[in-house]
């Protein structure tokens, strides 16, 4: 009992420190765009962690929820003149609704789920970018949200979404609900005979994960203010989030955080200036990781201490 509380407090402190850090950094470091993107990927990685880390489903189409969030929020603002914040929240809800429609995919396992989810995200992309829908989605011509542009407010919105994503992961990590998810990931039959409602628990994790990506999409749309369907449905977004989670260590709070900071940092410092080296180093790093540290960087800490936040 006691120990549980201590772990909870450590987690909360960690989250507060990270949030405070990103709140203060813009004052001393002027690459606001980079800071925003790091937060965005931390939130996406933590959101993906909810479904991958705690249930084992690898959502290659995760970007679909991100794109849905971006488009739903934008269209609510542009067409229905909904306020920015409610529009972003509804963007998250829209992503969850798509998640509900896609729940039958959870019956597939392993690679089949990953591929079907990828296909679903591409289908959404083709619907939204269809020129026939120009009157509604602007089709391939993209969205312009400059009327509500606000760099500071949208940065702070990202901060809140990142905080929220962290809190969800902490909840998954410390609650009996999270334990039941890990039991399902291990062996769903044994979990069901322990009295766990397997379908419900999986679905909740899936919808929360989609919700986080939807929120990220909405805030991203607000921050960038101009984007195209291929920007917010780029498969790279899924791949980045997946690689960051795997690199850092799934099913922990700090794993996706570490993965994002290290790999996204590298991507920005050497990837953009010297992409040829970057690809090489990145590729090697990932191969080495899978060979020697299949459970991510956090498994190094686990050798020293059995519990890592």
């Amino acid at each position: 009992m006691r120990k549980k509380n201590i772990r909870l407090i450590i987690g909360i402190i960690l989250i507060l420190v990270m949030t405070a850090l990103f709140a203060l950094l813009p004052k001393i470091y002027n690459n606001n765009f980079l800071l925003f993107n790091i937060m965005l990927y931390i939130a996406l990685a933590e959101g993906l962690n909810l479904i991958y880390g705690f249930t084992g489903y690898l959502p290659f189409g995760y970007v679909g929820f991100f794109g849905i969030g971006a488009y739903s929020a934008s269209l609510l603002i542009l067409l229905l003149h909904v306020g920015v914040v409610p529009a972003i929240l509804l963007g998250g809800v829209a992503a969850s609704i798509v998640g509900i429609i896609l729940t039958p995919l959870l019956r597939l396992s392993g690679a089949y789920f990953a591929i079907a989810n990828l296909a679903a995200s591409q289908a959404i992309y083709y619907i939204i970018s269809n020129p026939h829908l120009e009157n509604i989605t602007q089709g391939p011509y993209g969205i312009m949200l400059s009327s509500v542009y606000d760099a500071t407010a949208s940065y702070n919105a990202m901060l809140i979404v990142m905080f929220f994503a962290f809190m969800l992961v902490l909840f998954f990590r410390q609650s009996r609900f999270g334990l039941s998810l890990m039991a399902i990931r291990e062996d769903s039959i044994t979990a069901s005979v322990a009295g766990v409602n397997v379908v419900l628990a999986r679905t909740i994790a899936w919808l929360l994960s989609a919700f986080v990506a939807g929120l990220c999409g909405g805030v991203f749309a607000w921050y960038t203010s101009v984007f195209y369907p291929e920007t917010v449905f780029s498969l790279n977004i899924s791949i980045f989030a997946i690689v960051f989670v795997l690199f850092g260590g799934a099913a922990t709070l700090i794993g996706p955080l570490i993965g994002t900071v290290i790999l996204y940092g590298m991507y920005n410092f050497i990837g953009i200036s010297t992409p040829q080296y970057f690809q090489l180093i990145y590729g090697l790093l990932i191969v080495m990781l899978i060979m020697f540290l299949p459970n991510g960087v956090v498994s190094l800490f686990k050798k020293v201490k059995d519990y890592v936040p």
């Binding site: 009996r176 334990l179 039941s180 890990m182 039991a183 291990e186 062996d187 044994t190 979990a191 322990a194 766990v196």
Partner: peptide, 12 residues
């Protein structure tokens, strides 16, 4: 559940 602790197994 082999990958959970004894205590977590009981809890479940």
């Amino acid at each position: 559940f082999p990958n959970l602790t004894v205590d977590e197994n009981l809890e479940l």
